[in-house]
């Protein structure tokens, strides 16, 4: 009852507007997108997609964990069509929920990113530190993951929870990739976690650093870059002991009710104009070989990149998160 009320205005208005504009749009239907994108990215992209294709996009924004849980819960009766921009290792772990799709311009995607079983790379993601340059002298910047465990940074580093945020899990996996996933790696991670002030969402991390609540944040490059672009007092540091350059993904949900529109959305998301837009406006790194990274961002070749094993990150996730939770509870 109420759902109809909520959709009516938007659906009618959009249908009329689009019908007037393109003539054939009423038949275009809709596509349901599950996304962990920031609202600002959704706001910038979705109207473009709708205007270009005449397809109405219904966006459901949630944390990446919530999205996976939802798709799992709806397995027998899928209500979503596309998972849009969540961490590759989460898609890898649940690749059984996904339907493989080869996009029309698959040959333009850089093969180093084509690592997913049933999902596609969407943008390349880099783990970075974001530091407040007004409150921290460059000599005090943490330069490596190990530095994050320094005693003088106790309570001064903002991070999301690895059991709630896909990017935060990737940061944990980053440390374990560099230092090993045995006791050695965890010994490096333990003081780091001890220095963290945790939040639910990784989007908040840069905000805390920008506002001076935290001196250092561990987050994704694009999120930190928004604050650099906005003129905030922040700077990006690339960990010298190695950052994983991994794609986040886009995928067609198995049994998607609007599968054809879903494929059109995926093609659109991987198209050159959209990827260029993501680079220019969002500070994301492209997965297409014919699109260059933003001029402000250093090329991937200028910092140390370590190979990220999605299969390993996905298959060990349960155990790692459990160990992370135990570590947290014994701080």
């Amino acid at each position: 009852m109420t759902r109809r009320i909520s959709l009516r205005g938007a659906a009618l208005g959009l249908a009329l507007a689009v019908a007037a504009a393109s003539g054939n749009a009423l038949a275009a239907g809709k596509v349901v997108l599950y996304t962990a994108h920031n609202q600002s990215i959704i706001d910038a992209l979705v109207p473009r997609f709708e205007a270009e294709t005449g397809i109405e996009a219904e966006v459901i924004k949630a944390g990446s964990g919530d999205i996976i849980n939802r798709v799992l819960a709806e397995r027998d009766n899928p209500r979503g069509d596309v998972i849009w921009s969540i961490g590759g290792e989460q898609l890898e772990a649940q690749s059984g929920l996904l339907e493989p799709y080869r996009p029309t311009e698959a040959d333009k995607i850089d093969p180093v990113f084509m690592v997913g079983t049933n999902w596609l790379p969407y943008t390349a993601i880099v783990n970075v530190f974001v530091v407040n340059k007004e409150k921290l002298d460059p000599s005090q910047y943490p330069r490596t993951w190990k530095d994050l465990g320094r005693p003088d940074l106790k309570g001064k580093i903002s991070s999301a929870r690895a059991d709630k945020s896909g990017s935060s899990y990737m940061q944990l996996a980053n440390v374990l990739t560099v230092y090993g996933d045995g006791d050695d790696g965890w010994a490096v991670y333990r003081p780091i976690l001890g220095n963290f002030v945790l939040s639910g969402s990784s989007s908040a991390v840069s905000r805390f650093v920008n506002d001076g609540e935290a001196l250092v944040g561990v987050t994704l490059e694009d999120n930190a870059y928004k604050y650099v672009q906005g003129g905030g007092p922040v700077e990006i540091v690339y960990p010298a002991d190695g950052t994983v350059a991994a794609p986040d993904g886009i995928a067609l949900i198995k049994g998607a009710p609007n599968a054809d529109n879903a494929r059109r959305f995926i093609d659109w998301a991987l198209s050159k104009p959209t990827q260029e837009f993501l680079v220019a406006e969002m500070g994301r790194r492209p997965v297409r070989s014919d699109v260059k990274a933003s001029g402000d961002l250093p090329p991937v070749s200028s910092f140390k990149v370590v190979r990220y094993d999605f299969g390993w990150a996905a298959s060990n996730k349960g155990a790692f998160v459990k160990r992370w939770q135990e570590l947290l509870m014994t701080q």
Binding site: T2, R3, E58, I60, R207
Partner: peptide
């Protein structure tokens, strides 16, 4: 809530968490 049934307080809460203070 799910995406289609988001309400103002939920949206405000998410915006605050995301650091979107203007919204």
């Amino acid at each position: 809530y799910v995406g289609g049934t988001v309400t103002m307080p939920v949206r405000i809460y998410l915006a605050v968490l995301d650091g979107e203070f203007g919204t």
